[in-house]
Amino acid sequence: MNMLRQAFVLLFFASILAFGVNSFHPNAIPLIGEYRELTEGSEPVIPPSAAEGDPPFIAINEARSDYQAGSSLFIDARDPSEFDCGTIPGSINMPFEYLPEDSLEQYMDSVLAGAAKEQTLIVFCSGEECDVSLHLARNLQAYGYIGVKIFFGGAREWENFKLEIERRVDCAE
């Protein structure tokens, strides 16, 4: 009983400190956060940084049906090391952080092997914590690729839905 009473006292003071410090914290958070509920896959993940004119954001269900149809090109915007650890099978790696700024258009054209500007390109990265897919998609759109879509759920949502992942390197350890 003494143990439970002590545990309750510790919890009480932890709560006082938590809410007290949070009210003065430079990075204070609201008591009820706004987190996305997991969907059945029909709702696209749209980041807060999305802006008007951005390429369309697609849900996992659409990404999956495009993948199965086989007519879309999937582009992984992450670093090569992350790409090698696990990506959507058949994806092309176009690491946004290493894009050659002075010859971007030639680089895109060569990596996409002369794909038509109307070709459906589905750009993704890890998931909600990364936004390189958004930046890469904006660049592709700016250079005339009009079939760009953003799959913001990314490789993580793909894996969560138990879809196949292509691993070039074993990164489990």
Binding site: Q6, L10, L11, F13, A14, L17, A18, F19, N22
Partner: peptide, 24 residues
């Protein structure tokens, strides 16, 4: 996210100094 870290700290301190030991 707010309460858990403070509970970790208070339980850690209580354990170290030996006050509210069983609760910690």
């Amino acid at each position: 996210a707010l309460v858990l870290p403070w509970l970790e700290i208070l339980a850690g301190i209580a354990l170290l100094v030996g006050a509210y030991y069983r609760g910690a």
